[in-house]
Amino acid sequence: MAYQQPAQAYQNNSVNTASPADLTLMLYNGALKFIKLTKMEIAEKRYNTAHEYNIRVQDIIRELMLTLDHQYPVAEQMNRLYEYLHKRLIEANVKKDTTILDEVEDFIAQFRDAWKQAVVLAKKQGHAL
């Protein structure tokens, strides 16, 4: 039986025990991390690795789309924004364009920051997201 490295075990435990709100925050942070890595790989002209990182961001965006609760009207608006970002990621991947990645990164950072504020506010009011 293979043993996991301590850092990997900690990460797995963090994901398995996180609240839905914290998981969403992890998704946003993961997307930002992989966008930065994609841009770095493009700058170094390592296009295959850049492609792999870009695909990871696309996967995260699709996961965020799946987590939307469509009983709320804002979910449809967020879905359209996520679709837009997904299309832009594909375009950035094809063109290896870091300017497009900057745009996507800015949107995701804003979503992440707003989500953090919502989580803090919800906790103060005794609600769970």
Rank of each mutant, 00 (worst) to 15 (best):
M1H: 10
A2E: 12
Q4D: 10
P6C: 00
P6L: 03
Q8R: 07
Q8W: 08
A9W: 06
A9Q: 10
Q11G: 00
Q11F: 15
N13W: 04
N13S: 10
V15F: 14
V15L: 14
V15N: 09
V15G: 08
T17W: 02
A18Q: 05
A18Y: 04
S19I: 00
S19N: 08
P20K: 06
A21H: 02
T24E: 12
L25F: 02
M26R: 03
M26Q: 02
L27I: 01
L27Y: 04
L32Y: 07
K33E: 13
F34K: 08
I35A: 05
K36Q: 14
K36M: 04
K36F: 09
K39P: 01
K39S: 09
K39R: 09
M40P: 00
E41L: 06
I42C: 10
I42D: 10
A43G: 14
E44R: 12
E44H: 12
E44N: 13
K45R: 12
K45V: 07
R46S: 05
Y47T: 03
T49A: 13
T49V: 12
H51D: 08
H51V: 00
H51I: 01
E52S: 13
E52Y: 09
Y53E: 11
Y53L: 04
Y53N: 14
Y53G: 08
R56F: 09
V57Y: 05
V57A: 09
Q58A: 04
Q58G: 11
D59I: 00
I60S: 13
I60D: 13
I60G: 15
I61H: 07
E63T: 05
L64N: 07
M65A: 11
T67A: 15
H70Y: 03
Q71P: 02
Y72P: 12
P73V: 02
V74F: 13
V74Q: 14
A75W: 01
E76Q: 13
E76R: 06
E76S: 13
E76T: 07
Q77V: 15
N79I: 00
N79V: 00
L81H: 05
Y82M: 05
E83K: 10
E83C: 13
Y84T: 14
Y84R: 12
Y84A: 08
L85H: 06
L85A: 11
K87V: 08
K87W: 06
E91H: 11
E91S: 13
E91L: 15
N93W: 01
N93I: 03
K95V: 05
K95N: 11
K96I: 05
D97H: 06
T99R: 11
T99I: 12
T99W: 00
I100S: 05
I100P: 08
I100L: 15
I100A: 08
L101M: 06
D102C: 06
D102P: 02
V104Y: 02
V104P: 06
E105M: 04
F107S: 07
F107W: 10
A109P: 03
Q110C: 05
F111Y: 11
R112Y: 07
D113Y: 03
K116A: 10
K116C: 09
Q117A: 15
Q117W: 04
Q117L: 12
A118D: 01
V119A: 00
V119M: 02
K123R: 15
K123F: 03
K123Y: 08
Q125S: 11
Q125I: 00
G126M: 04
H127S: 09
L129W: 01
L129K: 02
